[in-house]
Design a protein around this nucleic acid. Sequence first.
DNA 1: GTTTAGGCAATTTTT
DNA 2: TTGCCTAAAC
Length: 776
Amino acid sequence: MNANYLDELNDRQREAVSHINGPLMIVAGAGSGKTKVLTTRIAHLMNNGVDAFNILALTFTNKAAREMKERIERILGGHEARNLYIGTFHSVFARLLRTDAPKMGYPNDFTIYDADDAKSVVKTIINELNLDDKHYKPNLVYNRISAAKNSLMSPQEYQHDYYIQQEDQRSGRPMIGKIYDMYAKRCFKNGAMDFDDLLYKFYVLLKSFPEVLSKYQHKFRYIMIDEYQDTNPAQYEIIKLLGAVHENIAVVGDDAQSIYSFRGATIQNILQFEKDYDDVKVVKLEQNYRCTKSILDVANQVIKNNKGQIEKSLWTDNDQGEKIRLVRTSTDNEEGKFVADTIAEQKLRNHYSNREFAILYRTNAQSRAFEESLRRMNIPYRIYGGLSFYQRKEIKDFVAYLRVIINPRDEEALKRIINYPARGIGKTTIDKLTLLSNTHDLTFWEVLSSAGNFGFRSGTLEAIDGFVTMIKSFQSQLEKSNAYDVAVQVGKSTNIVKELFNDKTTEGLARYENVQELLNSIKEFTETPTEDGELLEKTLGAYLQQITLLTDADQGNDEDSDVVKLMTIHAAKGLEFPVVFSVGLEETLFPNSMAINSREELEEERRLFYVAITRAKSKLWITYANSRYRFGNLVQNESSRFIDEIPPQHLDRSYAGGGVRNMGSTPSWGGGNGLFDRSNRKPAPGHKTTTSIGTNPNPGPRPATTVTNHVPTEGFAPDDPVNMEVGMKVEHQKFGFGTITSMDGAPNNRIATVNFPAAGGDKKIMLNYAKLMIIK
DNA sequence: GTTTAGGCAATTTTT
DNA sequence: TTGCCTAAAC
């Protein structure tokens, strides 16, 4: 044990670490050493006689949990840290539910449904109710259900809540409550919990079984919560229950970094903490060790535009540093090129390595332009936040077999594999089976294994029986041999592995390799001997539960690979990088048009920007593009209002992207000749050119985009593109009237360059996609 | 029952 | 642009 750990802290940090008993709230500004305080405090508790088995630490990501564990081990030395309960809310509760879920009628090897599984169940139910899934969009319905669970609302409460029913009535979806009810019942029937259930059902468990609650209250005498500002009501209530006896609850958070309200998080949890408990010790960590003065200043100025925060002022002893570079490019591709060029240049000039750069964007879809340009420049990179390995189709298919073996009630998994690989059990049969399952109150598996009673055609029956027999043989094999051998057997008996092996396309090869990797991971998981004190089980059931909770960020060896990192700002929370590119600072994108309908939403977007800024240690670029492709057509956006909130003296605009600077303001065509101007446009209010950015400290309301306010002519109907030629006058729904100036591209994919005076000049229009009407 | 072609809509963040 | 769904062909 390193006894000097307290010396490495500043006064405030030490104050937080030394507080052992009673509620504690640590308000930790960005870069103020939050993780250090948390980990040191845990070590300190143990050093003061608290048993590791009595400590629970909850985080939001597996990565954060892993990091904490490692750092504590480093402070303590030895293996004692293994006995700590450190993990995400979801993974810790899943583990506890493996023991106690049977009390509520679930199998202990219950399946965990990821978002895709859950949506698929929702969709099934919508169809069973004969509702139109164009109107009852599964995504939307699932989000409502999710929100209900995160507020600890049962289907019955949902259906009887006046306000919610009003809302659903108004949106024309009065059946959501019914869907929720059926969804909950179906999941239960399937022996499955979705992500939200891991919280919700754990709460129900604690509420319904006082002896279980008491067990955990006495086990977890010290509780620590990371990122407390992102907790939702379910998490909040659980913590309250668990901590009620000892009240040794320490929460760490920063209200300025609350960015998960869409997942039900309420900033109120942290704002109210002092009122929830008596004698709360509050410690504010206000010294930032991460950023330069310039960067921190900018962050502080930006966040000032939000109301209702915990009073604090973040400061730093670090150097002033350089100004923040603001760069505008003409298109999203240019933005990508600029960033890649700049990374190359910075590497040469300042001897940075790849791993010191991060590109942070608002939406995953933005990654593409950066990928392409980085690849062109031969700069290695990694994108975080794509599909997790376990969400790939070939992996989910294979895993579905394992799921069925472990939990045959799992209807989602069964339907996935019952005809994969094809064995002659088609849609008609599956529909019939489903109906039987619903009407006879049998699980899908029970129907399958008694299919002989239901009058199927002999060929069909044979196929079903063959499938059932195969699954049963896997199950009995699992009793005798280990999980890996069974998995290999699954690959063989089903022919899946051979089939993938024979597919010699690039994708086929990748799929084959992925399945091999899956098998390896099972081997590694189940055959690595359990070390002393290690709490994890090594069964196939435990493996399946664990992988569902893994995200893309949890794979691979990020620390040791020297790559540029690309991720959303959400994914970057808690991380830091020497050089950060915060890209796509445009109205509509960031703040996102989906999130500007209320002050609360806008403030959350601003906090997101705050998070982006404060990821940077020494250099920060902010970029935006004049126009970018969205669903095949070019749209123009104004610069983000957040740019206007940055004090001009901190900005350096001289850093122009490659040859982009002469895209000045656009001349208006409509002014002098009204020939094509049938729509009587007004100039967009608040429209600004680049040169005026930041000069208006208090910008008025602005339109979402600067795509001209073109109103299509009455009776607008696109013409067949084959008839279009250079010189023609055309009308576009958004860009207004223009002239085709040139034509290129393949004959079956012609690209017209059209000059739209009212929409900023030349646009490349792919005739196969865009809708143009010829003006005679 | 299986495969493929073509039409159509999508527009945020994630454990 | 993609990915999903339906309809028609095999």
